[in-house]
Simulated scan of single mutants.
Amino acid sequence: MKKTVAEILAYVALWAVVSSLAYASDPSPLQDFCVAVNDSKAAVFVNGKFCQDPKMATANDFFFSGLNIPSNTSNKLGFMVNLVTVDQIGGLNTLGLSIARLDFAPYGLDPPHTHPRASEILAVVEGSLYVGFVTSNPDNRLISKVLYKGDVFVFPVGLIHFQLNVGNTPAVAIAALSSQNPGVITIANAVFGSKPPISVDVLTKAFQVDKNVVNYLQAQF
């Protein structure tokens, strides 16, 4: 039976939608887990890691100890993060998860940054944090809030975000991220601390400031 042009177009449109959905996320795992090991003789290579034979997995492949230990925040930012990814827990491989402890000195700052491969959900354990993220162009709208113990906030994947301790006591937060290797790009470090440095001509025009200002900022990194 011949199909009309409208029917053919409808089939094409449906195929395009289904195809786009099929590639919209990571493929589903084909086994319960895929513990990452540094063994080139392992049989399967998944997400940049070799997989251990599942029959050899033990509880330690899914275990990490130490998020109860405060990090040293005696630095310029008054901030330190202890990030637990697939490199610390081999069992995270293919699961799309990681976790972090964030420690803040009084008025410490986790500076504006992005996670190119993960959304983040953050829960405040102690203290109070001013947090926020900026929407993409052209709006660049700041969405922010002060969080207290027990509060939770979400940072969408890829968007610039930050956390600032607004109290005079230390603050602690726990963050979960939707990638086994979320990555991080700290904006100031990337722009003013790249190696080799970005041309001063580029930065003066981008930020609309004097070259001396750019030279000063680059010297800080």
Rank of each mutant, 00 (worst) to 15 (best):
L147N: 00
A118R: 09
L217K: 08
F33C: 05
P106D: 11
S28K: 13
Q218Y: 10
D61R: 01
G183N: 13
V146Q: 11
A43T: 11
S28G: 08
D139G: 08
T4V: 01
A118C: 08
A173M: 08
D53T: 04
A10E: 11
A13E: 14
Q220L: 14
L83R: 01
A10F: 00
V35S: 07
L147H: 00
S19D: 13
G158Q: 05
L147A: 03
N60G: 03
D110I: 09
C51H: 05
V209A: 04
L9P: 00
G96C: 09
M1T: 08
P196S: 13
P112K: 02
I185N: 07
V202T: 10
D87Y: 04
A190V: 07
A176P: 01
P70F: 01
T58R: 08
N82Y: 04
P196V: 13
F221T: 10
A57G: 02
D53N: 13
N60S: 13
N93C: 08
V154M: 11
F207E: 02
S144K: 06
I89E: 02
G48C: 14
S19H: 06
N47K: 10
D32V: 09
S74F: 03
C51I: 08
N168A: 14
D26E: 15
A22L: 13
K145W: 02
K145M: 02
D139P: 02
P54L: 05
N215T: 08
D151W: 07
L122V: 13
V200E: 01
K205A: 06
S179P: 08
N47W: 03
I121Y: 09
V131Y: 01
N38Y: 14
A219P: 04
L77S: 04
V202N: 06
M80I: 01
L83I: 01
F64H: 11
P29S: 12
E120S: 06
K76Y: 05
V46G: 06
V213G: 00
T135I: 14
P106S: 14
S74M: 10
A219W: 07
K55E: 15
N165P: 10
V84G: 03
S136C: 10
L102Q: 07
N140K: 07
R101C: 11
P111A: 03
R141S: 12
V12H: 00
V191K: 06
Q180S: 15
R117W: 07
P29T: 10
L77I: 01
V131N: 06
P138K: 06
F155K: 06
A100L: 09
D139M: 12
P70G: 04
T204I: 12
V202W: 00
S128C: 11
S28D: 14
L92E: 04
K41R: 15
K2G: 11
F153K: 05
D210Y: 01
A190W: 08
A10I: 00
V86Q: 04
I198T: 07
F207S: 05
V152Y: 05
V84S: 06
N181F: 10
A36M: 11
G91C: 03
N93R: 01
V166E: 03
V184T: 15
G96M: 06
V152Q: 09
D201F: 00
L77D: 03
S19A: 13
G78Q: 01
T114P: 01
L129T: 02
Y107A: 09
T114A: 10
A10R: 09
Q52A: 11
P106K: 11
